[in-house]
Amino acid sequence: MPVKSILIAVNDTPVTEELVRVSCKIAKLEKANVYIVYVFEVPRALPLDAEISEEFEKGDLVLEKAAAVAEEFGLEPETDIIQARAAGTGIVDEARDLGADLIAVGMNAKPKLGDYIFGSTVNYVLDRAPCQVIVVRNAIKN
């Protein structure tokens, strides 16, 4: 199935750079448009449209870095900050609105005893996404 648009959901964790790189490689191969979104989970104690300057600044910074990585691949990503009650719903809804063919989400390596457990966001996206999903996990450093 051709991939014409990729939605990359980024945050301020170490996996973001690797996530964008992997996604951009696919985008380059598939000649796909790239959308990078940062989701600010608004606590229920605030209105959904609450304007928190610190979150805007953080989001802008993360998006700047992610966009810079994408530009290394010669891509012109569109970036956006999304406010949602939960990151998972924000990502899936945005993918649906954009008509994205692929969602790329990241998860951080957390070596633990026992099986690896996805976080609630990755779980939600895997469960509800209307399109293909890739999950990128960063390498475990020795």
Partner: peptide, 20 residues
């Protein structure tokens, strides 16, 4: 295109609100 400068104006608008 190769050699082109990239000019990208970041959007200056309010964040999208996801209504559920």
């Amino acid at each position: 295109l190769p050699g082109d400068k990239i000019f990208r104006r970041r959007r200056h608008r309010m964040p999208s609100l996801k209504k559920a």
